[in-house]
Amino acid sequence: MRRDSDLGGLADPGRFSEPLEIAGNDAGTLLEYLRSMQLIRCAEELIGEMVTEGVAKTPCHLGIGQEAVAVGVASGLNATDRVFGNHRSHSQFLALGGDVYSLIAEVLGKADGASNGMGGSMHLYGASVGFQGSVPLVGATIPIAVGAALAAKMGGGQEVAVAFFGDGACEEGVFHESLNLASVYELPILFVVENNLFSSHLDIQLRQPSDSVARFAEAHRIQSRIVDGNDVVRVSAAAGELISRARAGGGPGFLEAVTYRLRGHVGPNEDIDVGVHRKMQDVNAWKQRCPIKRLHAAMAGAGLITPDEFDEQSRGVMSEVRSAVDRARAAPYPDKSTLLDLVYSTRARA
């Protein structure tokens, strides 16, 4: 049985396909958003091709269509902030400035990878840009991010922790425990839910009594915002406000970014057949809400980018990612000794 949507238009695939409202935003910043989203899209499309080809074997959860969430949130963060991801974290890694070559090398299990070839797509590490780790156990990094925020508060610094997770993770008990801790200890953390309306295969309408998860923030007395997750400008504004508040000692924030993944739960297919309530007409409608297309249309309409400039930028991104793929495919695998050498930390090795 389908219930009424609490998200209303935000969850309606037929809405919000018009160009973004960009008035008042700096042109250089918008161009950065566009390039960052294009880079993520291109990297994930090529990773998808390598999955199809059988070159990338580790499970790859693509966030194609959800790029604006990571890029918008990253715009309010510094390299000393502490960001944690999940199974679908290529976008966050790249949005923070993680190197595309090290991402692709990691996906291919190569020694040059972000996690030295030990993690694959689902376990990424990029501490130099603030990306402190992603893992695929649903909800698992939420309390770890709370601990990162606790450490920041104890240390008296200005760092903010960020946990990225999905609507499915909001059904895990640890999510509620973590929000409670963050709230009672007034920790500097931003909880970011990429609500793409589906768990691996099941519509949120079949899993929760409401399709909006921000109600949990209210239950724990945490400030929250609900935004169109395919609108990078609105994501950036809402995240920036919550991050600044947390940084200033105002306690945790909660951002529900409503979005949609254009591919299946794992791998490059559209997964129409395995999804309950995942219809091709919805996927096609959400393609009209593409965050890149909407920003580009707005920028083109405002004269901020010419067709030639856009083509040149697109070609530049494609060439950067292609060259990363070529290098990564030729790169060496980890030495066999890493299997046992990394079980315990180097300094304390048994």
């Binding site: 709370v146 601990g147 606790l150």
Partner: peptide, 12 residues
């Protein structure tokens, strides 16, 4: 969550 928070703090 408390165990996770301790793990998180131990990374910093």
């Amino acid at each position: 969550a408390c165990t996770g928070a301790a793990i998180g703090a131990s990374l910093f």
